[in-house]
Design a protein around this nucleic acid. Structure first.
Lengths: 195, 195
DNA sequence: TTCATTTCTTGTCTTTTGGCAAGTGTCCGT
DNA sequence: ACGGACACTTGCCAAAAGACAAGAAATGAA
């Protein structure tokens, strides 16, 4: 029985400039993927083997700092791709975990099939490169804002741009993403870092 | 007259698994590129059009924060590639500047030729993807350390891993790279943040 | 509903960092 | 050698953030 892949089809159409027939061929290799809340899309120590389009839900990427606490490195929200480039594409052991904060559903494809499509469909290869570069650029932009903006400004922007994260992530998850402690973030929230 | 491209040849051989003949074909499209100290490899507002292998010298990438001051986002040292992925590959206007801190020499290829080689030589395409992913992974690793490590530890690691940067970069360049002010970095250097 | 666990807030205090600004040092050109 | 521009250091004080701990609020299970 076939799932409704319309959202995935629209996403690929928008980002790969190719015919409807080829888009159909591409999406036919994606499989429905559900991850329950708290389930893992990727565990550190494993080699990532999946490329996921997230149709619904929120995920969080994190790594363990030397001190032992979790540091959130990314959030993933609906209608975007979820993958860990270095582990997936260089086939190395991942340092990151990617965990579902809510029940998630989407469509995934294995590394092997993804590569097969990259080889056989040049437009999809371009799509893959564009998505990789887009992730890279987004990551750079965020890093830059972590240097130039205060935690307060970053919080405000995250809230404006990705409000759905705040429905599912804990305060400490967001705090470590912004590089502050959870008590500091709690104060920032209340609007008075000042006494 | 031909320049000595041996270092470039070795770099590509090490990172692209292909025949000597194809490596020769690839490097034949690279041209000698010299950038004098303080010259720009890329200026913000322009679309990047070059992919550079740096044989000798040090470059610095930076952007202007809203407050107006320069924030160093990267350093490039010899025997690695220099490029700005989002501007080069998505053909967007760059927010970053890449400027030579010392006289630099290397070999560059235009976007157009690079793309042509990516299309005609699958192994070089793989090389390109691997380099992109490698840059991405390195960038992520650095960002992570900026959250989990103190400025002091980051400074120590930068000094251990890229001592050549300290020969050519100013204190304020390194300070903004580490996300601290130059006076703080000066204190860190002396080893007494403590009174 | 009630209890227990977890999450979040808040107060106090300490440490770190930033913002000046003055002082020292270094490099260049004349 | 002199002056000037620039880079770096340092002191002082203020602002920001962290550590720790107590308490409030929310969540979930029985």
């Amino acid at each position: 029985m076939e799932q409704d892949k319309q959202v995935l089809i629209d996403f690929i159409k928008k980002n790969a400039h190719t015919s409807d027939r080829i888009v159909q061929e591409i999406v036919s290799h994606f499989e429905c993927k559900n991850i329950p809340r708290n389930g893992f899309f990727l565990k550190s120590g494993k080699v990532s083997n999946e490329y996921l389009f997230l149709e619904e839900g929120v995920l969080r990427a994190f790594t363990l700092a030397v001190s032992g606490e979790e540091v959130t490195t990314n959030f993933f929200t609906k209608n975007r791709l979820v993958f860990e480039p270095s582990s997936l594409f260089i086939r190395t052991v991942s340092k990151e975990n990617i965990q579902a904060l809510t029940d998630c559903k989407g469509f995934s494809i294995t590394y092997e099939k993804l590569n097969m499509l990259f080889h056989s469909i040049p437009e999809f290869r371009e799509f893959g490169r564009a998505m990789l570069v887009k992730e890279f650029a987004a990551f750079k932009a965020r890093t830059l804002s972590s240097i130039t903006e205060t935690a307060e400004e970053q919080y405000a922007r995250l809230l404006a741009e990705n409000p759905e994260i705040f429905q599912s992530a804990q305060l400490k998850h967001i705090a470590s993403y912004l590089g502050v402690t959870d008590s500091s973030l709690s104060r920032i929230r209340r609007g008075f870092s000042k006494k």
